[in-house]
Nucleic acid binder design. Sequence first.
DNA 1: GTCTATAAGAGGATAGAC
DNA 2: GTCTATCCTCTTATAGAC
Lengths: 215, 215
Amino acid sequence: MNQTKRKDAKASKPLSRIQEANRKAILDAALDVFATSGFRGATIDAIAARTGMSKPNLLYYFKSKQQIYQQVLEQTLEDWLAPFEAIDPEGDPVEELRRYITAKLEMSSKRPEASKLFANEILHGAPVVGSFLETTLKDLVTEKTKVIRHWVGEGKLAPIDPYHLIFMIWATTQHYADFDIQIRAVAGSQAGRPGFSEQAAQAVLTIILNGIKPR
Amino acid sequence: MNQTKRKDAKASKPLSRIQEANRKAILDAALDVFATSGFRGATIDAIAARTGMSKPNLLYYFKSKQQIYQQVLEQTLEDWLAPFEAIDPEGDPVEELRRYITAKLEMSSKRPEASKLFANEILHGAPVVGSFLETTLKDLVTEKTKVIRHWVGEGKLAPIDPYHLIFMIWATTQHYADFDIQIRAVAGSQAGRPGFSEQAAQAVLTIILNGIKPR
DNA sequence: GTCTATAAGAGGATAGAC
DNA sequence: GTCTATCCTCTTATAGAC
């Protein structure tokens, strides 16, 4: 992840504690605003208001709206991929995938804004993360497809295409964050109940894991 | 779908053939632009340019950007739900679901803009279709959950929650349209090949249908 | 560091000629 | 019906006082 000039340049810019706190507050607020409004829909005013700062003061910390957006995205991507990277080729296939799906569902439930931010970026043509997708992510996915293919070869999984399995997991898990409005509208009372997330996890795991068990 | 004043008011506004053609051209162009740029990101200029019209001329046909957006969405929703409504309670469960999933994947492949437009609308809080989701769609989904539950009761499907099965189908099928950029970036050469859509359909059907078969 | 004021520009919408 | 010109609002970004 390209983080050319953040807190590294200690020599030229020793950021104070308040400065770091302010930057973080801005990025947190920006995540929410960008997630629900998209890049164009978001305004610096809205982000500033959410942090209690004035608009020019916010631009004292980040030189442009674009820059805030990029940094929020970068920050988010790292967390986002961690559980995917953690899939262990040596582990039990079904158990590894169960762990991965569970982790992603938990992220969708606890930080839906992160998922929405990412969805927005891709939906609009991935102007910022496009090259990241074509390099880092592509390599990572290629690696994991090999792992899955190996599992299939050993007879530990049904013969499914690794790419589509991965896409399916991404789709289902992120859907609960990205389309939460629709889910709440449609499932109504059900979606409000406390155990709903767990119920979702149960259902997704049941279907996918049953679907890929060798028979 | 609320279509209070479209081509119904024949008495006050008998639209000519060219008028209808122009309106349609505008709505087609608008679908593309709104889908890739979102409501805020889209400009009347961009839509006008795509139709070869001038901005004011476009506003002769529709009185505001908002109005164009609403009509594009309404128009899209009808097509979007047709295959869902068509799920037949009397049919064979697995066969009905196979037909539905296949139809949705085909729509994602042939008209990804429609899916993206809808995704955008939901992602941003469903400002226009919110009430539609809470009424018409909710009722429709409730009806279909009963059908699925009935199938489960008869032992024709594994005991899965109907809501989550429906969400899963929506998620996976629409993912191929909404995230096509990511899919192409990650799957690279694979995604370019002619049989890719069919391969995707095969994989999705295999996993979901295996996942819900009674055992 | 944080504010008020304002420049600069994009984009939605209208007026009015043709 | 379609165009050119224009108005006006919203938003990004900067200048400069405190």
